[in-house]
Design a protein around this nucleic acid. Structure first.
Length: 546
RNA sequence: GGGGGUGUAGCUCAGUGGUAGAGCAUCUGCCUUUUAAGCAGGUGGUCGAAGGUUCGAUCCCUUCCACCCUCACCA
């Protein structure tokens, strides 16, 4: 602890002479003020040091050195009466507005006021160039001692990369043709303490990028584009559903029973009620209660939570849209979904074609439709429809599909489908008529009691939606739940619970209803050509640092 | 859970059984149309963590941690 005191004070002495040489300030009054500021700052830094020393013995890491230097600059600024964190700045334009109207603004010698983060700096003694960035782009600024005066110029030389500044000036074009702001006045709007990643290479380490998304966004403006597109996608969907008369609602995230999907939940606890609650895994059962209650068309943009594995397609919390439409069946939902996706794609890209990884996907033609059993038959030559569970399981085994999970006919069909069909579905394809065994909330198929009226949409090998003619027979629903409970007892951790209140709701009478759920993250992945769900979620789940 | 990979300066990366380097950033000096500005000089490291082998480990071995890819499981 003794060493830093001496060391620090000596450094301060050097620092102080340096600033005086810079010529920005002189006179004994100013000196006294600065002395006072330094005293205060030393006190602050010393107590910071004490704090740090209590946490770790290492006193002086390189990063600390940089941050310390910047704190010293802040202290000097304050001693000169400059607030390093002022309250607001009146911008006249954004950078992209200036770029778009550059010629006219330059001709008319309009004074513009821009603000942004300083990302590059080229200091040349009595003049300086710098690049500032805002959401819409980059603008070069030119600060010349003749234009801003000695004091401002000295101040500008003390700015660091990463500082947020505001500049006022007119426009010109340099001899190398770069559009530039001739700065007459500038202000520090927020001092940056932490150095930016490499100005050229950027931030490469994926872990750091996800953990410090703010830094990722600063140095990779193109990443922002993905999230702007995400916002547009949701806006298109919202517009579409609104035009079709769907009402946006909100249902509980904290639920005493979870349901609506096959997944393991997160558990939490409410102190006052002294009960465990589950974070919802789906909205389905609440939204259908609203259909019972007389809403004809409802939807929700929802965060769901599933306590399962994480990989490029799964984050523990993720976003879905679920919608329910009274007096409609799954065929109606199919065409609704198709229209919705086509509008969304077109709004985003101005075309119905997208590229995802190696695939070009075209949303313009009507989506191909196949029943799940037919799809398996086409891919493998095996028709599972007429087979018993045992025979189907034996057939599957000949294709190398086996496992403890194949506990009924439906599971066999599903496994065969996933193995041989799912990866091949590049163009938007509706797979319909799922086995009853694996669809506890869907209505039995009007032509085949072994199947349900359920479909999923596949695009580029990804499942992007799940829909059914909703089961509205309360007795059937109770029986399905009971089967699920039985499966749960047998060890299926993702089996449904029996939701008595939901069955009671159905017993009041729910109109025939079509419902749909689709994952927003995966849709955004598709439409922004992102490989991992972590690239479309701003703050993906990570194990905490340290 | 299996397999593969990565972890060295704030960032991007080299590298070696004899306790470490580059570029950028940072600091100092010079520089009034530069643009990854330039030139000159400096500071900065528990080489992811803990054990082991060795006279000596950042390097070899073991275990652990984090992340990435992939397969499996799972929507």
């Amino acid at each position: 602890m003794g060493v830093p005191v001496v060391d620090y004070c000596e450094r301060r002495g050097l620092q102080r002479r340096r600033y005086q040489h810079a010529g920005a300030v002189s006179g004994t009054d100013r000196d006294r003020k600065e002395d006072q500021a330094w005293q205060e700052e030393i006190t602050t830094i010393m107590s910071d040091k004490q704090d740090k020393n209590q946490q770790q013995a290492e006193p002086q890491l390189p990063l600390d050195e940089i941050i310390k230097n910047r704190r010293e600059k802040i202290a000097v600024l304050r001693s000169e009466g400059i607030n390093p964190y002022p309250y607001r700045y009146e911008r006249s334009h954004t950078i992209s507005e200036v770029r778009d109207g550059f010629e006219a603004l330059m001709q008319s010698e309009t004074v513009v006021r821009l603000a942004g983060r300083m990302m590059l700096q080229r200091l040349m003694g009595k003049a300086a160039f710098a690049d500032i960035h805002d959401l819409g782009g980059r603008m070069q600024i030119y600060v010349k001692i003749n234009n801003v005066g000695e004091e401002q110029f000295a101040l500008f030389n003390k700015m660091d990369l990463g500082d947020i500044i505001g500049v006022e000036g007119t426009l010109f074009v340099t001899r190398t043709g770069e559009k530039t702001v001739q700065v007459h006045k500038f202000e520090l709007l927020s001092k940056s303490l932490h150095p930016l990643p490499d100005k050229h290479a950027g931030l490469v380490d994926k872990e750091t990028r996800y953990r410090r998304r703010y830094a990722d966004l600063i140095v990779h403006p193109e990443i922002r584009q993905t999230f702007i597109q995400r916002s547009r996608i949701i806006r298109s969907i919202r517009e579409f559903l609104s035009e079709r008369g769907f009402i946006e609602v909100e249902t509980p995230i904290l639920q005493p029973l979870y349901g609506g999907a096959a997944a393991r939940p997160f558990v939490t606890h409410h102190n006052t009620l002294d009960i465990d609650l589950y974070l919802r895994i789906a909205d389905e059962l609440y939204l259908k209660r609203l259909i019972v209650g007389g809403f004809d068309k409802v939807w929700e943009y929802c965060k769901d939570f599933r306590n399962e594995g994480m990989d490029r397609l799964h984050n523990p919390e993720f976003s879905m849209i679920e919608l329910y439409w009274a007096y409609a069946d799954y065929n109606d939902i199919m065409s609704l979904f198709q229209d919705l996706l086509r509008k969304t794609v077109f709004d985003l890209h101005g075309s119905y074609k997208i590229t995802y990884e190696d695939h070009e996907v075209d949303f313009e033609p009507a989506f191909r439709q196949m029943s799940m059993v037919d799809a398996v038959k086409e891919a493998t030559g095996i028709d599972l429809m007429p087979l018993s569970f045992e025979d189907a399981r034996a057939e599957a085994k000949t294709k190398g599909v086996e496992g403890d999970g194949l506990i009924n006919w439906g599971k066999v069909v599903e496994a065969m489908f996933e193995q041989f069909v799912e990866p091949t579905l590049v163009q938007p394809t509706v797979i319909k008529d799922f086995p009853l065994d694996i669809s506890p909330l869907a209505k039995i198929h009007r032509d085949n009691p072994r199947l349900t009226e359920r479909f999923e949409l596949y695009i580029a090998g990804l499942e992007t939606g799940n829909a059914f003619s909703e089961l509205n027979d309360p007795d059937d629903q109770r029986a399905r739940f009971e089967a699920q409970v039985e499966a749960g007892r047998a060890g299926d951790a993702e089996a449904h619970q029996l939701d008595e209140d939901y069955v009671r709701a159905l017993s009041y009478g729910m109109p025939p209803t079509g419902g749909l759920g689709f994952g927003i993250d995966r849709l955004v992945m598709l439409l922004t050509n992102s490989h991992s769900i972590r690239d479309v979620i701003l703050f993906p789940q990570m194990r905490p640092e340290e």
